[in-house]
Each structure stands twice: as C-alpha cells, then as structure tokens.
C-alpha cells in the first residue's frame, strides 16, 4: 500500500496523495451529513406534499399549493447563488461559511426541496388499494403514513436516496469554487488555478468512482430489501 502511495506521490507530487485522501474523506462527510440533515426536513415535507395532494389521504388544496410553490422556488435557485445568499445563516449555525462545515449547511438546504420531491413521487406510487385496506381496518393517518406509505415505498425511497447522494456530491464539488473544501476544492485550486492538469484529472476520476460506488451500493441495497420480486 505504501509503495503504491509513494508511486502516486511520485507521479503527482509530494503530499498530494495525502491531500486527495483527506479531500475524499471531507467530500464523503459533506455529502452524507448534508443528505442526512436534508432528509430530516425533506422527508416530512415530501410526506406532507403526498398526503395533502388531491389524491392523498388528507387532501388539502391550501397546504399543497403553498408547499408546492415554496418547494419549486427553492429548487429553482441555482446552488451557487443559494450558497452565497445564506452565508449569514450558515455563519450563525456553524460559525463559518467556508470549509467542510460551512458547506454542509447550504448543501443540506439545497437538498431539502429535491428530497421532498423524490419522497413525494415515491409515496404516490403506493397502491391506493392497500391504503384503502388500511383505512378499512380503522388505521389513522399517522399509522398509514408510517406503516403503509413509507414502508411500502421503501424500495423507491432507497433509490431516491441514491439519486440524492449523487446530486449532492455534484453540488459539493461546485462548492469548491467558493472555498467549500473536499475534492471539488482540490480540483479548483490545483487543477484550475494552478494548471496542474494531472491533479484535476485524478480528482475527477475519484469523483466518478465515488458516484459509481454509491449508485451500485444504493441499487443493490434497494433491490435486496425489495420483497415484491423474490
């Protein structure tokens, strides 16, 4: 392993391997932590959207329309603009607006409306007949949400998580342009500003590999846990 690392170092320059490893770690932290917080808000929002829509279990045009508009507005703001817009908020929350921690906040916020839409779409796929069966047993709305909608949409929700992780990884690389930390930051600083093409290429290759691995694992888990095709 060490010989391999020194080989890479010899090719890219001293200490670069260490830097790439740290960058990969930071990127993974950013992506997973912000996806986690994104779901903390995005999952309930998606549930509300699915439930309050006209075919949902509690149709409510006012709630649906307002959440729908808010979600659309936040989804339309380009990520870089959002990142800059919420700098005061980010500073208030984590004390700084750059580096790994400073990027997690805007990433999580950008993820919320996206996650909400993914969750909404997943829950709407659940068979209406099964929901009706639960209602006929005297199940309340909360029980239906947890034990029918979310439980039955499990596979689709997991596919959603995979898509979200890939998208957030892309955003995190973008955050590199404004001191965001992680692999994107390295690609910008070394590859773009200092014309070190090799480092940039290697960074991009690592990003591609990360997306491939996440996609592969995500699909594998969702397929393995799906009881509809046995």
């Amino acid at each position: 392993m060490n010989t391999f690392l020194s080989l890479v170092d010899g090719y890219l320059g001293n200490g670069v391997t260490q830097m790439l490893l740290e960058g990969t770690r930071d990127t993974l932290i950013m992506v997973f932590v912000s996806t986690f917080f994104g779901y903390l808000l995005g999952l309930p929002l998606g549930v509300l959207l699915a439930v309050s829509d006209k075919d949902g279990i509690r149709p409510n045009a006012v709630i649906y329309r307002s959440l729908d508009i808010v979600t659309n507005v936040f989804r339309s703001i380009p990520f870089l603009i959002l990142l800059i817009l919420i700098i005061p908020f980010t500073k208030m929350l984590v004390g700084k607006s750059y580096g790994t921690e400073g990027t997690i906040v805007p990433l999580a916020i950008a993820a919320v409306p996206f996650i909400a839409r993914m969750v909404e779409a997943s829950l709407k796929e659940v068979d209406k007949g099964v929901i009706e069966a639960a209602q006929s047993m005297g199940a309340g709305d909360f029980t239906i949400i947890c034990k029918v909608l979310i439980a039955e949409a499990k596979t689709s929700l997991l596919v959603g998580v995979t898509v979200v992780l890939g998208t957030i990884l892309g955003y995190s690389a973008m955050a590199g342009t404004v001191g965001g930390g992680g692999l994107g930051d390295i690609a910008i600083r070394y590859g773009y500003y200092r014309y070190q093409l090799k480092i940039m290429v290697v960074t991009v290759v690592i990003l591609v590999l990360l997306v491939q691995i996440m996609q592969f694992l995500g699909m594998l888990i969702s397929r393995k846990t799906d009881k509809r095709r046995l």
């Binding site: 068979d127 099964v130 006929s136 047993m137 005297g138 309340g140 439980a151 039955e152």
Partner: peptide, 21 residues
Amino acid sequence: LRLARRKIGMIFQHFNLLMQR
C-alpha cells in the same frame, strides 16, 4: 368511525396485501 371499522373486515378483488411484509 375508526373503532366501528375495526368490527367490519373487508376483502378486495386485488387482495391489497402489504407487499413488503
């Protein structure tokens, strides 16, 4: 109503079982 529904079982043309359970 929910309490009353518990005393009224229902079965359906397409069974409507929970597929993930």
